[in-house]
C-alpha cells in the first residue's frame, strides 16, 4: 500500500496524471476492502482529494490553449528555423506559413503582406493574407483587403479573379452572402491550371462519411480554416462533442471530398491532431488537423 502511494505521488510530480490517478484509485479500493484501514477517515479523504485534484488537472490540460502569443524574438526564430527550401522565395513563404501554423496569425499576416509587396509568390501570399484575416475572425477585413487589391497594382487581373473565386467560395461556405466586386479588365485566356503555386490545391471545405466513433455512418461537411500544403485545419464547435470524438488522432478518413475553389477532388487522409482554443472569439471550440495523402494523381470529380 505504501509503495502504491509512493508510485502515485511520483507519477503525479512527473505529470503522468492518468497513471497517478489509476494508482490512487487502486489505493482507495484496497482501503475499502480492508477493515483495518477503514477507520482512518483522514487518509481516505486525503486520497480522495488527490483524485479530485488530478481530475481537475487532466480536464485543464484538455482545455489548454494551443497558440500562446510568442515574443517577437521567438517568432523570428520560428520563421528562420522552419524554412528549408534552397529557393529563397519558397523559404520565405515556408517561414511565414510556419508562423501561421504555430498560431501567430498577426505576425504571419505581416509577413504575407510583405511577401506580397515584394512580389514573392503573390497568389499564395494573397490567399494566405485572407486566410489569416479569417483565422482572426475578421471577415470584413478580408473583404476590405480584396477591395484594396482590386484598386491597386500588386496583382494581375488573372490573379485577382482566382483570389475572388477563392474568397467568394470561402465566404459562401461560412454562410456569408456578400457581393464581392467584380474584376474588370482583360480576361484570362488560359484555363486555370489544377494545382496552385504551393503544389497543393486550396481546399475550402471537406465532406466525408465517418466510419467510426459516435457519428459513425453519418456524412459531414466542414469548412477549412487554414491550410499548409497537404495539411488542413478545421474549427469544430465545442457543442459538437460527438463529432470531436469521431475524429480521434490517427483515424484514417477514406474517400473524403475536398472542395477547392476550382474543382472537387477525392482523396484519403488521416486525422493528425486536435486541440482546443482557449482565447479569442472561438474560445472553447476545437481545431482539427487532417493530413491529406499525397498521391501523384488527384481523383478529380
Amino acid at each position: 500500500m505504501k509503495s502504491l502511494v509512493k508510485e502515485a505521488e511520483l507519477y503525479r510530480t512527473q505529470g503522468l496524471l492518468e497513471e497517478s490517478k489509476e494508482r490512487y484509485l487502486e489505493v482507495l479500493q484496497l482501503i475499502e476492502k480492508n477493515q483495518r484501514f477503514q477507520s482512518n477517515k483522514k487518509a481516505i479523504n486525503v486520497i480522495k482529494d488527490r483524485i479530485v485534484g488530478l481530475e481537475r488537472d487532466l480536464a485543464e490540460i484538455d482545455q489548454e490553449t494551443e497558440a500562446p502569443e510568442l515574443s517577437g524574438k521567438v517568432q523570428d526564430l520560428i520563421k528562420n528555423l522552419f524554412s528549408f527550401s534552397q529557393n529563397k522565395d519558397a523559404a520565405e513563404m515556408e517561414g511565414a506559413v510556419a508562423l501561421a501554423r504555430f498560431g501567430q496569425y498577426e505576425r504571419a499576416l505581416a509577413e504575407f503582406n510583405s511577401l506580397l509587396d515584394k512580389g514573392t509568390l503573390p497568389l499564395i501570399a494573397a490567399k494566405n493574407v485572407l486566410r489569416c484575416h479569417l483565422a482572426l475572425s475578421s471577415t470584413d477585413a478580408a473583404i476590405d483587403q480584396f477591395r484594396k487589391w482590386l484598386s491597386g497594382e500588386l496583382l494581375s487581373k488573372k490573379q485577382l479573379r482566382d483570389i475572388r473565386s477563392f474568397l467568394e467560395y470561402v465566404l459562401k461556405r461560412k454562410g456569408i452572402q456578400t457581393k464581392l466586386p467584380e474584376v474588370v479588365g482583360e480576361s484570362s485566356q488560359k484555363p486555370k491550371e489544377v494545382g496552385s503555386e504551393g503544389g497543393f490545391l486550396d481546399v475550402c471545405s471537406v465532406k466525408m462519411r465517418l466510419e467510426s466513433g459516435p457519428c459513425k455512418g453519418s456524412t459531414k461537411e466542414l469548412d477549412v480554416t487554414f491550410q499548409s500544403g497537404n495539411v488542413i485545419s478545421l474549427i469544430v464547435s465545442a457543442k459538437d462533442k460527438d463529432l470531436i470524438d469521431s475524429f480521434m488522432p490517427g483515424i484514417r478518413l477514406r474517400g473524403v471530398h475536398f472542395f477547392s475553389s476550382i474543382c472537387v477532388f477525392r482523396a484519403n487522409g488521416i486525422v493528425s491532431e486536435w486541440t482546443s482554443i482557449k482565447t479569442g472569439p472561438r474560445r472553447g471550440d476545437y481545431v482539427l488537423s487532417i493530413t491529406i495523402d499525397r498521391s501523384d494523381k488527384l481523383d478529380i470529380l
Binding site: R101, S289, T291
Partner: peptide, 23 residues
C-alpha cells in the same frame, strides 16, 4: 495530440535521440 507539430519539428532532421521512459 501534437502530432502535426511533431512532424513539423522533425522536418529536415539529420540525427535522432529517442528518449524512452524506463517507468
Amino acid at each position: 495530440r501534437y502530432s502535426s507539430t511533431r512532424k513539423m519539428v522533425l522536418k529536415g532532421v539529420d540525427g535522432v535521440v529517442f528518449v524512452a521512459d524506463s517507468l
